[in-house]
Computed example of a mutant assay.
Amino acid sequence: MAKLLIVYHSQTGNTEQLILAAHRGAAKESDCELRLKRAFDADLADLLWCDGVLFGSPENFGYMCGAIKDFFDRTFYPAEPYELNLPYGLLVSAGNDGSGAIREMDRILCGYPMKKALPDLIAKGEIQQAHLQQAEENGEAFATGLCMGIF
């Protein structure tokens, strides 16, 4: 059984809407065990447990949120000896264009090392039904890909 970790932070609820939609989609894959964690509650043990990770972050000042950065700060060096090489996907709720948050998360995740397995989902402005549908599809695709071993 594949194991999918979903790590996120949300202050306004926008990112949480995206993450819960992705979680619903991933839950459609019955052969995938899911673990949903807020960034401040996730740790190295969660990364060692999983086969892939979805990260959700609001865009703050053109960057990822502090909680996701804190997660990276707490796990990056302790994860180094494990050479995780996990697939990942990114979901960002953005007031701007989201590119700075995506760029910096990609840069950090490359060092773990992790490999991007999904196109980025950037929800600009208020969360719309189309954003939620795409997040759900991304969650389902990611979980299915983990179970099939294609990532």
Rank of each mutant, 00 (worst) to 15 (best):
E59G: 02
A141L: 04
L84F: 08
I150F: 04
A117T: 03
K124H: 01
P58S: 09
E16I: 12
L18V: 06
M1V: 13
M1A: 13
A26E: 03
K37P: 00
Y63N: 15
G139H: 06
A94E: 11
H131L: 00
W49A: 12
S93V: 11
A141D: 05
I19V: 15
G145R: 15
L47V: 05
C110G: 09
E59W: 02
G95I: 04
F40T: 11
F71W: 05
I122R: 01
G66L: 14
L4P: 01
M1I: 11
A79Q: 10
G56I: 05
A42N: 01
G62I: 08
G111V: 03
M105C: 09
L54S: 06
G89W: 05
G145I: 03
I127F: 00
G52D: 14
F151H: 01
C65W: 01
K3V: 12
D73R: 10
S57M: 06
N96G: 14
G52S: 13
R24C: 03
K115F: 00
I108N: 08
E140R: 12
G125V: 05
A143Q: 09
R107K: 14
N60F: 10
P81V: 12
P119W: 02
K28M: 07
E59T: 06
I19R: 00
P81K: 14
A21W: 11
A2Q: 03
L86W: 06
I102A: 14
T75K: 05
G111W: 01
G89A: 04
I122Q: 02
M1E: 03
N138E: 03
C65G: 15
C147N: 15
L84R: 07
E104K: 15
T75P: 08
N14K: 13
L5G: 06
A123Y: 05
Y88S: 09
R24I: 08
G52K: 13
S99D: 12
S57T: 15
N14D: 13
G125R: 07
D31C: 00
Y8W: 10
Q129D: 11
H9E: 12
N85I: 10
Q129L: 12
D51R: 08
L20K: 11
A141Y: 01
L91V: 04
Y8C: 11
M64L: 13
G149Q: 07
P81M: 12
P113H: 01
A27D: 09
D46C: 11
E83G: 10
M114D: 03
K28C: 04
D31H: 02
Q11D: 13
T144A: 14
Q128H: 07
K3R: 15
F61H: 14
K3W: 10
A45N: 12
P81H: 10
Q17S: 13
H23L: 07
E29S: 03
I122L: 03
M1Q: 06
E33S: 13
